[in-house]
């Protein structure tokens, strides 16, 4: 029953004393090892995607946990992000023209803030839950129990989480875009410091925000979903050492997810500019 996930389940070698070079090299080697494990797990997960009814049932359960349960929080966060954007930008633009408020909010939300904030939100909320759940399953032998039952842990645990997060995140991004823009519109309507009408705000927004901007945002969301689920599954499955190990894995999974979201963001933007 030793199988595919074994490469990510070997105990970490004990920390040894060493000089400055060893001190510098160890974190680099650890980082490379985690990246390698994550890449291996990603391809192993892809290899195990089978369109069976059981898989889709598990995906739906994860979609509810990752997506549906995050909707209220998404609403609150993106509403206030949209509102803050208008307040800040309106103040800066007071001396020039506030007529471009709609395009600023629209482009910021669809291209950048919607996907990135949702990525962070999902990493903090659902990603940490995945790392903690898989971590405690690893520590308390539940992963081994699956193996002794001839159930592949990657197919059983990682496949539904990867699919669910990849599908749920773009939907949440779209929802966040709409709510964020609506939040901006509320400030435009009621804040006396904003001198334009809601109609002007929306007209300017629709002039500047095109279909491609929205699609790039959604692609970002899907990519962030893949990254977050993969990172959190990797850290969950490599957990060692009881409750402390679970806590460490969960923290590391969230931090790594944040960093990867920003790195992915940069490269997706670079690619999007080419097309």
């Amino acid at each position: 029953m030793a199988g595919v996930s074994d490469t990510i389940e070997q105990p970490m070698p004990p920390a040894r004393r060493g000089g400055l070079l060893a001190g510098l090299g160890r974190p680099i080697l650890n980082t490379l090892q985690i990246l390698g494990e994550g890449t291996f797990l990603f391809f192993s997960t892809l290899q195990r995607i089978r369109p069976t009814g059981r898989t889709w049932t598990r995906v739906m359960i994860q979609m509810v946990r990752i997506g549906t349960d995050t909707v209220p929080l998404t609403f609150l966060v993106s509403l206030f992000v949209g509102m803050v954007l208008v307040v800040q930008t309106a103040d800066q633009l007071e001396q020039y023209t506030q007529e471009i408020l709609g395009s600023i909010v629209g482009l910021a939300m669809t291209k950048e803030l919607g996907p990135v904030i949702m990525g962070f939100l999902i990493a903090g909320r659902a990603g940490s839950a995945i790392a903690a759940e898989l971590g405690s399953m690893t520590v308390y032998d539940e992963i081994n129990a699956l193996k002794t039952m001839d159930i592949d842990p990657i197919e059983f645990l990682c496949v539904p989480r990867l699919i669910a997060m990849t599908l749920a995140l773009p939907m949440l991004v779209l929802y966040a875009d709409v709510v964020g823009i609506a939040g901006g519109a509320i400030v435009v309507a009621f804040d006396p410091a904003v001198k334009i009408s809601v109609h002007q705000y929306l007209e300017n927004l629709t002039q500047w925000v095109n279909f491609k901007d929205v699609v790039v945002g959604l692609i970002k969301g899907a990519m962030f979903g893949i990254a977050v689920s993969n990172i959190c599954c990797t850290w969950g499955l490599r957990t060692r050492g009881g409750a402390e190990g679970v806590a460490m894995s969960t923290t590391a999974a969230v931090v790594w997810s944040f960093v990867m979201i920003i790195i992915f963001d940069y490269f997706i933007v670079r690619l999007a500019i080419l097309f």
Partner: peptide, 27 residues
């Protein structure tokens, strides 16, 4: 072959019946 782990290793998100029947259901 079956194994009973020291920690019991029951799946906390499943009921007792779902735990017991997991392999039978899966296959």
């Amino acid at each position: 072959l079956s194994m009973v782990f020291q920690s019991s290793a029951l799946f906390n998100s499943l009921t007792v019946a779902e735990n017991v029947s997991l392999r039978l259901q899966e296959y």
